[in-house]
Design a protein around this nucleic acid. Structure first.
Lengths: 207, 207
DNA sequence: AATTAAATTAAACAAACGTTTAATTTAAAC
DNA sequence: GTTTAAATTAAACGTTTGTTTAATTTAATT
């Protein structure tokens, strides 16, 4: 896992920040080198090329994206509580890795570079399966409707979150969120609550 | 409005395609010139610079984004029908302009260039007001719950759509959508239905 | 202390970038 | 048909790009 030395870790950290802020094409290796206080040749020296640096970054960060389900399958939790917890976990996870998420999404969008997204897709498939299991339990207990497209629930959760983050200036103005903390608190509290409410409503909606 | 000649329109068309496919930084004016069959100097000649071309593109396309509400306020439609129609309209609009939407979103994300998004924000505010009016009507008629954060509904609608589009390869594989038409039909039918169902559920959910 | 490998540097590289120039062609006006 | 303005072109501009080179410093090994 961490077969990277301190310098490499610093480079990855800086690259994550700059790539997510300005995009891959919008970030030069000279930008990265300056911010990381290293010579520009060190990036090729350590990672081979700028593109391989991106790949190393994505592979290194992706393992963090799989949800931590430790307490999620405890029997004493109701399906409703499990869904709420799952959504909370989703948002916490994305929020923690929002840099690499932005990078991946842009790279997926641009389709310019053919990075191997298999690991990323595996995580998504695994997370979807966890959700399916919880919903099935709720359906068997007669709590949730049968009439729902389960595979479209993750895009609803994550899409709402991403769209809110992407239009940060607009919503910060709309909700009068002056500081970064204000905004983050709104995400963790109000937005999360809204998404939980939305999915709960969807899962209990008949007709 | 259309104070652009045929060549300029062609350039805008090509720029929209390439910017949305490869991003602003990932597209060179030589790419645009080649695809539009014009000399590279024509872009500076007509638009002043590459950045001003982007600005002209966004301003030119943004007028299309405001929802057409012609039939939406007819009294004979129920609030439920109005919401469904509004969502359908939302998705149709975005789908038609998905190129420029991708460009704008990336530019918002990157925060590298300071484009004037006022016109874009105005459209969003207007569209939100339309939604608020419909929901208020439904609340007064006792059909919709009071307990809902209305301003978070557009991000739910658009976020779900965008996230689905952004992860096209993943969902095309998941739902076995082989052709472009298959995918587009899924968006227009299944995804739209899912979003309508989600918002209807949210608006009638108590507690 | 001498030797060897790894880390780091400044400089140079060719390629691609956006833009400008100056010359030429095309079209419009008279 | 001549004049004038607009459109179009190829070439060159100076930067910036990612990468490589070759020299030097640092650290580890013997």
């Amino acid at each position: 896992m961490t077969d990277f030395n301190d310098k490499q870790i610093e480079i990855l950290l800086v690259a994550e920040k700059l790539f997510s802020d300005h995009g891959f094409d919008g970030t030069s290796i000279r930008d990265i080198a300056k911010e990381a206080n290293i010579n520009i040749a060190m990036i090729s020296y350590y990672f081979g090329s700028k593109e391989k640096l991106l790949e190393a970054l994505i592979i290194n960060r992706i393992s963090d994206l799989r949800l931590q389900m430790e307490n999620l399958f405890k029997k004493e939790l109701s399906p409703f509580e499990k869904i709420d917890k799952l959504i909370e976990l989703y948002i916490t996870r994305i929020n923690k890795n929002c840099g690499v998420y932005q990078i991946i999404h842009f790279e997926i969008m641009s389709r310019k570079r053919d990075i191997n997204y298999e690991a990323f897709n595996e995580v998504k498939k695994y997370n979807l399966q966890v959700l399916k299991n919880i919903i099935e339990e709720g359906q068997l207990k007669g709590l949730f409707t049968q009439n729902v497209n389960v595979a479209l629930i993750p895009p609803t959760i994550m899409g709402t979150y991403f769209h809110f983050q992407m239009n940060k200036p607009f919503y910060a103005d709309l909700f009068d969120l002056k500081t970064k903390d204000d905004f983050n608190n709104y995400v963790v509290n109000d937005l999360t609550k809204h998404i939980q409410q939305t999915i709960r409503a969807l899962l209990t909606y008949e007709n």
